[in-house]
Design a protein around this nucleic acid. Structure first.
Lengths: 148, 148
DNA sequence: ATTACTGCAAAGCATTTGCAAATGC
DNA sequence: GCATTTGCAAATGCTTTGCAGTAAT
């Protein structure tokens, strides 16, 4: 499935989500949704707002924030914070769940995954009678390139 | 060792840290440091500022933020974010490293720890050639009391 | 037609910063 | 005495909100 097809499929699902809430499918939401799905990096809302403020079809800052919240609610993006005050996003659709290394020197994000980790988290949750819905793990340190 | 003694000891270490930087040991820093060390909950900088703005020995908001940054730098507190925009702190001194459950309904923080988790994180870091210095794991979901 | 969404600009809010006065060394 | 720190208040920067106009159903 090409990226274009994947995005279309995701958009259809997002449309369903919007409709199921009794909300409306709008051009602005589509522009933002597609932009975000095409990005494979970690980004901030403000950055999306900036990128979408220049083109032919402009979208306002407020709408970007509101749509990103919708996308988070529906699980198409994941938000997290790098210990800084700023919220970061990444799109989730079609990505395996993963954790992050963040390099404290160059700021790079590196993704990794490990099935055992997931098992242990599930096991710990059970032990504490906690009903897990999601988790975020970030490991801080130095990436290969930034070590002496 | 009583809490009072523990705090004194920690303060001495913090003094060493400050001096090693060529910075100065001040009354304001001591007030903030001791307040933070006496708290065993998760707090925000603003909350500390508020609490310390009323007493006999008042400390300004700006100083609280600056001192908390110093304490984070020296490892006496750990900062993290709950997915919201706000930064949360907890003091670390004399606490075992632990992870958190955060209840999405009542907002409660529950601490847990698991040695296997640490091993796996270390192992993953090695695999990726990443030099780990710290990590943060938060599991979101529902605590026992908030499940139906 | 009705109701929700958008764009804009203003408001919010936690955090940071500039500067004169105070304090540590 | 000199450099750093403090307190204050103003500034910052990301995010949210109110509102009047616009678009979706």
């Amino acid at each position: 499935m090409s990226e274009e097809e994947t995005i279309n499929k995701a958009w259809q699902e997002f449309v369903e989500f919007i409709k199921s809430k009794g909300d409306r499918v709008t051009r602005a939401r589509q522009i933002i949704f597609e932009h975000v799905m095409r990005r494979h990096d970690h980004f901030r809302a403000d950055d999306v707002a900036l990128k979408l403020s220049g083109g032919q079809e402009r979208v306002s800052r407020g709408t970007v924030y509101r749509t990103l919240a919708l996308m988070e609610e529906s699980g198409f993006v994941r938000a997290f914070s790098d210990g800084d005050t700023h919220r970061h996003y990444e799109h989730v659709y079609g990505h395996k769940h993963h954790e992050h290394f963040i390099c404290e020197k160059c700021g790079k994000f590196i993704e990794f995954e490990n099935p055992e980790l997931l098992e242990i988290i599930t096991r710990c949750s059970k032990t504490y009678g906690f009903e897990e819905s999601s988790h975020k793990l970030v490991v801080f340190g130095l990436c290969r390139d930034c070590q002496d």
